[in-house]
Amino acid sequence: MTAISPAAPGVTVSARPGVAATMRHTATLAWRSLVQIKHNPMELLDLSVQPIMFLLLFTYVFGGAIAGSTGDYLQFSLPGLIAQNMLFASLTTAIGLNTDITKGVFDRLRSLPIARSAPLTGRIVADTLKQAWAFALFLGVGMVLGFRVHTGVFGVLGALALLLAFALAMSWPAVLIGLTAENQEKVQIVAFSLIMPITFTSNAFVPTATMPSWLQKWAEINPVSHLADAVRGLLSGGPIASSAIVSLLWAAGLAVVFAPLSIRAFRNRT
């Protein structure tokens, strides 16, 4: 017969980590994801090359044909390009999460005395912070090319805050894709198939009035259109409240729908 001996005096049995410990574990693993850039500079290069490439291509290839001059088009398109890049950058969450799971990183982390949710939340926090780098790069290069901010520092900070809030909400669909896809190739196929049509059927790159009437109806409710309009207002001036509120409502809706699904998939997968 086997008897279960009681815990020795003065020794407490480990329990589920509290809120403070969970936040500390999340911060530690988020820092782990950020420090990885030092050892893998290509990850930061991916976040840098694509924004610059899109900015140069859209400005100097399409700008003259769409707006008559590259300067006018840059002033219109930069906020839309920032919104589009935010969606594409959410792929890093899906790909990174899928890589950690398929390579057994999560199995090793589960053997540590940390909160079970910390690997997931740490990845989300780190990738959301990386979005700030992409925003700064877009804005910096755009200003070198001739883009001008007309709303001052508070407008820039407001645009960044709105983008980070939307990026945080977008991380939940990305988590679900990363957890359910078998490998990185399928993650990219699924994500691109969803993100590409949403961004290119918005007013991120062209005014809605230039679209066919049937497409205008979709563009007017497209969340990317509202996000691009809000960022335009915050950076260049113009109406802000309506587009910002709708963008935040879309973000809240994405989080409410996909966060429970992602958490369930995470528990099943790990």
Rank of each mutant, 00 (worst) to 15 (best):
G64V: 11
G64R: 11
A65H: 13
I66Q: 11
A67L: 13
G71M: 05
D72R: 08
D72F: 02
L74Q: 05
F76C: 06
F76V: 05
F76R: 07
S77W: 01
S77R: 00
L78H: 04
P79R: 09
P79N: 01
L81I: 11
I82E: 00
I82L: 10
Q84K: 04
Q84A: 12
N85S: 07
M86Q: 13
F88H: 04
A89P: 01
A89T: 12
T92G: 14
T92M: 02
T93C: 07
T93D: 03
I95Q: 02
G96N: 02
L97N: 01
T99W: 01
T99Y: 00
T99F: 02
D100K: 01
D100V: 00
D100H: 00
I101A: 09
T102K: 02
T102D: 03
K103R: 12
V105N: 01
D107T: 09
L109V: 01
R110E: 13
S111I: 05
P113C: 07
R116D: 13
S117V: 09
S117G: 03
S117F: 03
S117L: 10
P119R: 04
T121Y: 15
T121R: 04
T121I: 14
V125T: 10
A126F: 06
A126R: 13
L129F: 15
Q131W: 10
W133A: 13
A134V: 15
F135G: 08
L137Q: 10
F138I: 05
F138N: 05
L139N: 04
L139K: 00
G140W: 14
G142I: 09
G142R: 02
M143G: 12
V144D: 08
V144E: 08
L145D: 12
G146V: 03
F147H: 08
R148Y: 00
R148S: 09
V149H: 03
H150D: 10
V153W: 12
G155T: 04
V156R: 01
G158V: 06
G158M: 11
A161H: 06
A161G: 07
L162Y: 03
L163Y: 06
L163A: 14
F166N: 13
F166R: 11
A167K: 14
L168F: 12
A169R: 11
M170V: 13
S171V: 07
A174Q: 06
A174N: 11
V175H: 14
I177T: 10
L179R: 14
T180K: 14
E182I: 09
N183S: 07
E185V: 15
V187G: 08
I189W: 02
V190H: 07
V190L: 15
V190F: 12
M196S: 13
M196N: 12
F200I: 15
A204V: 03
A204P: 00
A204K: 07
F205E: 05
V206I: 13
